[in-house]
Simulated scan of single mutants.
Amino acid sequence: MIPFNKPYLTGKETEYITDAVASGKISGNGKYTQKCQQFFEQHYGFGKCLLTTSCTDALEMAAILIGIQPGDEVIMPSYTFVSTPNAFVLRGAKIVFADSGTENPNMDVATIEALITPKTKAIVPVHYAGIACDMDAIMDIAKRHNLFVIEDAAQAIESFYTGKDGVKKALGSIGHLAAFSFHETKNIISGEGGMLAINDSQFVERAEIIWEKGTNRSAFFRGEVDKYGWVDIGSSFLPSEVIAAFLWAQIENILAIQNKRKQLWQYYFEKMQLIADEISIQLPKIPEYATNNAHMFFVSFESLEQRTHYIQKLKEKDILAVFHYISLHSSPYYHTKHDGRVLTNSDKFTDTLLRLPLFFELTEKEIDRIVACFN
């Protein structure tokens, strides 16, 4: 069996976990937490970084930080994971779903402005498969309408965007806030885990308080206050040192992991390109302003029936390939709350997109075996 995903271990994870346990500080915000956060701040130009127990938690922190209130509206793609809207729904927001573009599942920037109302509070672009949304256009819209931008960069670590100014910026460093995932399906992992990047300095102090259950505990341990107490709303968002120690072993190997994943992605692309026209499938298209972090290799078919056929064909050869999101505007929970707009491209990707196996230990020989199933 070739699985869809296989978590990659560098070999240092248990060593660092043992070190964290031996230190006597395993509850969080210790040595490994600090090492991870500093790495992301220094290497990617993020503002203040705070590790979280999941990307979901990072998004929930973002919703609190921008002051989401009942009735506020938040614009985001329909083709995304439920964590993206859930974080804002929990604060009482109304989700306004945007359609995807024609070439990839990222939100169609050209449709955003028409969705803005006096109640709109934020735009949440999702960088699907680590492929950048057009952030210049999104930030321009946000600035003109005084909106916050929260990047859902769950799949976008080590992926970049080059704006009109020619400056290459890491995804997650552009919006006011950004959320990352280190779930076991991501490029670097900690089992479960995530991170909030705070690029707008007005949110830094409060973010740390929300992160620490609504207390100024972190300031107390730095000696900035003589006692700590309950000063704001918050929750238990910070992960244990065990999770951070695991993540640090991955961070140390991030370039090797990325190089291998990119090599495999490119091999896939070259092999699938030879047969794409023959079997009428669309391969991933990377815009000129974006880089490819090789988070996933996906293809799009002409119909649901064609995709179902190939899923079954792969399964018969002991290869697990999986589709992805179901458009959230038509979900059991939200379809009655959606405004009725037809989101053609989102529904198209719901029916036709297929993710093929891609993980560090996949071999070119196994990719050959997968591609052969399409002949």
Rank of each mutant, 00 (worst) to 15 (best):
H309K: 15
S173T: 02
E252Q: 15
E305P: 00
I66Y: 09
S159P: 11
T344Y: 07
Q273E: 10
S27L: 10
Q258P: 00
N253P: 00
W248S: 11
G24F: 14
T363S: 13
L238P: 10
Q250A: 12
N293Q: 02
I233F: 11
I17G: 04
P3H: 10
N104I: 09
A372G: 08
G47S: 05
I210P: 02
S300Q: 11
K6A: 06
L283M: 13
G172A: 03
H183I: 00
L196Y: 02
S190M: 09
H43T: 14
I198D: 04
E316T: 12
Q34N: 14
F323S: 15
I319A: 06
K121P: 05
A170Y: 11
L362V: 07
L358N: 02
Y79N: 01
K285F: 05
I123M: 10
T344C: 01
E13I: 12
A98V: 02
A137M: 11
L90Q: 10
T215L: 12
A294H: 06
L283Y: 12
A142K: 11
Q42G: 03
Y289T: 06
V342P: 00
G166D: 03
R222F: 06
K48E: 07
D99H: 06
K35P: 03
F148H: 15
L356K: 03
G229I: 09
N106P: 01
V299F: 08
E103Q: 07
L343K: 09
E151A: 08
D351R: 07
G191R: 05
I116R: 02
G45V: 04
L264R: 05
Y32E: 06
D351H: 12
M272K: 04
R355F: 14
K348Q: 01
N104E: 05
D99I: 00
E364N: 10
Y268I: 04
I275M: 04
F88N: 03
E208S: 14
I138E: 03
Q263Y: 05
L362N: 03
I2E: 01
A63R: 08
I17S: 04
G191L: 15
F46K: 03
K35H: 07
I157L: 15
G194Q: 11
F88H: 02
S300H: 07
G175M: 03
E224N: 05
V167E: 14
A321P: 08
S100V: 01
I141G: 10
I243Q: 15
Y128P: 01
A62H: 07
K227H: 12
I275D: 01
H309P: 00
R341M: 04
I131V: 15
K48N: 11
K315W: 10
V231N: 11
D134E: 15
E288I: 05
V96H: 08
S330D: 14
Y334C: 06
F221M: 09
D140Q: 14
H295V: 00
S78T: 02
P7Y: 02
F88C: 06
S83Q: 04
D19M: 04
S331Q: 05
S23R: 01
Q266P: 00
T14E: 14
S330Y: 10
S303A: 08
L283D: 04
